[in-house]
């Protein structure tokens, strides 16, 4: 049966597990009974979804003969994979309760956009080079870090709103302290920014190896780098924190994703 499955089927199957993760969270929310085992079930569903995403990327990589970042569909699915990877690493490390509940819908949504709306025709115009793969993969992994930072920022805003409203709901007890959430989102943005920087350096090397700049993507990459770098600099200077930080993290991630798709839609020679 597995042999009959296409690579896209694996992504659909991954979506099923992200829905299951959401359902487990809902159950945990509703009945509270056996919360510990449901928490494990939630994490296992996310892990299974991640493995299926990995299977999709592996099969697609074999099919296109390079890192599967040849069109907007693959790239978007790669961003979702990166966000899931960061969740699997960050969740147990920081013991962030309920992070899975916020991550699953975001990953589900990003993959759904890819599956339903984005062009899935492999675009192999660029010459193949390991440096191109390195540049693209690291850059997209950075986007995964930004995605999870946005998820954590969403948790911050939810918790902050409950604190401000003086009416704590049940999620109040499940979510961590706002200060903790802010620190985690800042660290994720920092990791994402460092990865983006490394990816861009890889892009410079790729340019020397295989040739021409793609001006649209280059300008977009520099804009994203400046935006996140500027945000980190403002935070370091003490000018950006709390609610404004959280809102900006989410806004920048959404802006980055939307503009990336727009750049991808642009006519040659802007797209790779």
């Amino acid at each position: 049966m597995l042999r009959a499955m296409t690579d896209r089927d694996f992504l659909w199957l991954a979506e099923f597990f992200f829905v299951a993760s959401g359902a487990v969270t809902w159950l945990r929310w509703r009945i509270r009974e056996a919360a510990g085992s449901l928490h494990r079930a939630n994490y296992l569903a996310m892990l299974t979804g991640f493995l299926l995403q990995t299977a999709f990327l592996y099969l697609r990589g074999l099919a296109v003969g390079r890192c599967p970042l040849t069109n907007a569909f693959e790239t978007t699915a790669f961003v979702a994979w990166g966000a899931t990877l960061f969740y699997l690493l960050i969740g147990p490390t920081y013991r962030v309760s309920f992070l899975g509940a916020f991550t699953a819908p975001v990953v589900l949504g990003i993959n759904a956009i890819a599956l339903f709306f984005l062009n899935d025709t492999p675009h192999l115009a660029l010459k193949h080079s390991p440096w191109v793969d390195f540049h693209a993969a690291i850059g997209i992994l950075a986007a995964g870090g930004f995605a999870l930072a946005a998820v954590v920022a969403g948790m911050y805003l939810r918790q902050e709103r409950q604190l401000k409203s003086h009416r704590p709901a049940r999620t109040f007890f499940l979510l961590p302290a706002i200060e903790h959430l802010e620190v985690i989102s800042a660290r994720l943005v920092t990791v994402g920014f460092l990865l983006l920087t490394v990816g861009m350096l890889g892009g410079v090397i790729a340019h020397h190896k295989v040739g021409p700049w793609t001006p649209g993507k280059t300008a977009w990459s520099v804009a994203v780098w400046l935006a996140f770098g500027g945000m980190l600099a403002a935070r370091r200077a003490g000018r950006l924190r709390g609610r404004r930080w959280a809102r900006l993290v989410i806004a920048l991630f959404v802006w980055m994703l939307v503009t990336f798709w727009l750049v991808g839609l642009a006519p040659e020679p802007l797209q790779p």
Binding site: F173, A177, E179
Partner: peptide
């Protein structure tokens, strides 16, 4: 046993949701 039921402990609960 969730949620404090005295003013002092409610304040502590809130502090723990603000500060890391």
């Amino acid at each position: 046993a969730r949620g404090a039921t005295s003013v002092g402990n409610v304040a502590v609960d809130l502090a723990e949701k603000i500060f890391r």
